[in-house]
Design a protein around this nucleic acid. Structure first.
Length: 575
DNA sequence: GCCGTTTTCGGCCCGACTGTTTTCAGTCG
């Protein structure tokens, strides 16, 4: 499985190489290795043990050696040597937007700057401006960047970025400057968090569009303003927004280019280069024998760009250089990944019986309106008192209501529960009740001690219980609010596999839990998944698109998702 | 440092904007 800790070491390695002025391709190789370690569904430790590390893309002889060394000794000698040769102050200064390795090194070497606070003082005392390549404006920019860095969050959850994007796009469209404008970048690829918002626009009058962007309500600072590109900081959170204007004939190329990912685009251009073509944000062009840019062969639509490179159109959420370019080529077979239309029912939702805002009938009708064949009503168990957890008596009364509603609707309603996994891993309902339920989602809500062993044991014990069907939001994280539990994932996966239990991809936009990395690993191990919304209101069934996108980014096929089946067989065999 | 429908050596993506520059380096995406 992905190994974020190791990935981080290789990223650090790459940064240190940048500072020491190493060969750019060597730097990129380390970044590429880090990316692989961040997303590979294979168990890296196992590959290392079996000497199969070089099967990973971007891992050759050198990288394999370093990874093996880390597993054997807990360190990478070359990395530690590199660390010793670079002042930590340079690394710190590079966190400031606009300061790269060259300028950071210059500041540390010539002024003896040891920290960001130091640099702030130096700028105020005008000691930076005499330096080569610096000036009075540089000092102001550095101070502003430091302020931005302190005030803004690193990354914004996808759902929040989408809300901001909607507001900005409606402003741009309403202003008349842009004929067409589409959010691109990691937002279009459905990454769980985004760092900034990239908008590609076709403008009748680019200058007017740039003016509109720079003067939008909510803009707190204009970072850059050119003829075709404007960057601003937006809102109290100083969220960065980049808008690029291109001519209509280049819109597809711009969409493709700005949607990325960077790694996907690099692969694409390597491919173009081998075909005697070159790709930029304006289109696909032939390369003349003398190396100059020749005739334009594509660019108006994204499809045309991919077609010119001998590829089918690749869905944005797959553009991460994880093999999609090969799969979508003439000789490849694109995987049939799960789609929203495959989902036949939702197996996790709440009603007014606990902390939902709609009744059983309302929720059932809303699910039916989506074309679902079944819906599990999974209100909370007693311990979740804060969420209106049911008592045994209220649970039985809810069953009466379910029975009554069932007589009125076509959709099959399952008697479910989201049962708390208590401190020791025992469940919050007696077995007698669990046995009379159709669908049991077991979830951790009270995090307790939170340590790795305890959390893992709780999940494993829940998976061992014969009445449990699935684990809900396994990591309990909330994006930007609460970190995931520290869990021995391989142990949890092993328990799920051994007992044939499902793990949930919770589609609540603030959860997305399992995340794509763990979902990919679980699927690779043959563990069934369920994609649920955990809806607390009828409108929340629509969140399923988030969960489906997590699954697609994880490369998951419909057959690996339980609730793509026409019927969910309940434990007691009732129909 | 990786990698192979040109290749086990010689390649490795491309452009906008800024600030300090008299033609470009640095940074970013």
């Amino acid at each position: 499985m992905a190994h974020p800790q190791l990935a981080e070491l290789f990223r650090e390695f790459a940064t240190l190489l940048v500072i020491t002025g190493a060969d750019v391709f060597r730097i990129r190789a380390h970044e590429r290795a880090a990316q692989t370690l961040d997303s590979a569904p294979e168990d890296i430790a196992l590959l290392a043990k079996e000497g199969r590390l070089r099967e990973l893309p971007g891992v050759g002889e050198g990288m394999a050696k370093k990874i093996a060394e880390w597993f054997a000794t807990g360190r990478i000698a070359e990395l530690e040597e590199l660390r010793g040769s670079v002042s930590p102050a340079i690394l710190e200064l590079m966190n400031i937007p606009g300061l790269g390795p060259k300028k950071a090194k210059l500041l540390v070497d010539t002024l003896g700057i040891a920290s960001i606070a130091d640099l702030e003082t130096a700028c105020r005392e005008q000691r930076v401006r005499p330096l080569k390549g610096m000036g009075a404006k540089s000092e102001g920019k550095i101070l502003a960047s430091i302020a931005t860095m302190r005030e803004s969050r690193e990354r914004v959850p996808l759902w929040e970025a989408r809300m901001i994007a909607d507001r900005i796009l409606s402003h741009l469209r309403g202003s008349g400057g842009a004929v067409e404008s589409v959010p691109t970048g990691s937002l279009r690829r459905w990454k769980e968090t985004v760092r900034d918002l990239d908008i590609a626009a076709v403008a009748r009058d680019p200058a007017a569009l740039m003016e509109t962007v720079a003067t939008m309500p909510g803009v707190v600072e204009v970072l850059a303003r050119g003829e075709t590109k404007t960057s601003v900081l937006f809102g109290r959170e100083r969220f960065q927004i980049d808008v690029r204007a291109v001519p209509p004939g280049s819109f597809g190329a711009a969409l493709q280019y700005f949607s990325g990912s960077k790694e996907h685009n690099i692969r694409l251009r390597e491919r173009a280069s081998k075909m005697g073509l070159t790709v930029n944000e304006y289109g696909v062009f032939r390369v003349n024998p003398d190396g100059t840019r020749g005739e334009k062969v594509a660019g108006e639509t994204e499809e045309s760009v991919y077609a010119a490179l001998g590829l089918r159109w690749i869905p944005p959420e797959l553009r991460e250089d994880r093999g999609e370019i090969e799969a979508y080529g003439a000789g490849g077979t694109p995987p049939r990944l799960v789609e929203q239309g495959d989902i036949r029912g939702d197996l996790h939702c709440h009603t007014t019986w606990s902390d939902g805002t709609a009744g059983v009938e309302e929720m059932a009708r809303a699910a039916e309106a989506r074309g679902y064949a079944y819906l599990a009503i999974t209100d909370h168990s007693p311990t979740a008192a804060y969420a209106g957890g049911l008592t045994p008596d209220r649970l039985r009364r809810q069953w009466d209501e379910i029975e009554a509603v069932q007589a009125k609707v076509k959709i099959r309603i399952l008697r479910g529960s989201e049962v708390d996994i208590l401190a020791g891993g025992e469940l919050d309902w007696p077995d007698a009740i669990l046995e009379s339920l159709d669908w049991v989602v077991a979830s951790i809500h009270q995090r307790g001690k939170d340590d790795r062993e305890e959390s893992t044991r709780r999940l494993v014990r829940a998976l061992e219980h014969p009445c449990v069907n699935a684990i809900g939001h396994p990591s309990t994280r909330r994006l930007g609010q609460r970190p995931p539990l520290d869990i021995d994932w391989e142990a949890v996966f092993e328990a799920a596999r051994a007992h044939g239990k499902a793990l949930e991809i919770n589609s609540a936009p603030e959860r997305l839990d399992l995340n794509e990395v763990h979902a990919a690993r679980a699927a690779a191990l043959g563990i069934p998944l369920v994609i649920d919304t955990d809806a607390h209101a009828t409108g929340m069934f629509g969140n399923i698109e988030y969960g489906v996108m997590v699954a697609r980014r994880a490369g998951i096929r419909p057959g690996q998702v339980l609730n793509t089946a026409a019927q969910i067989p309940d434990r007691r065999g009732r129909r």
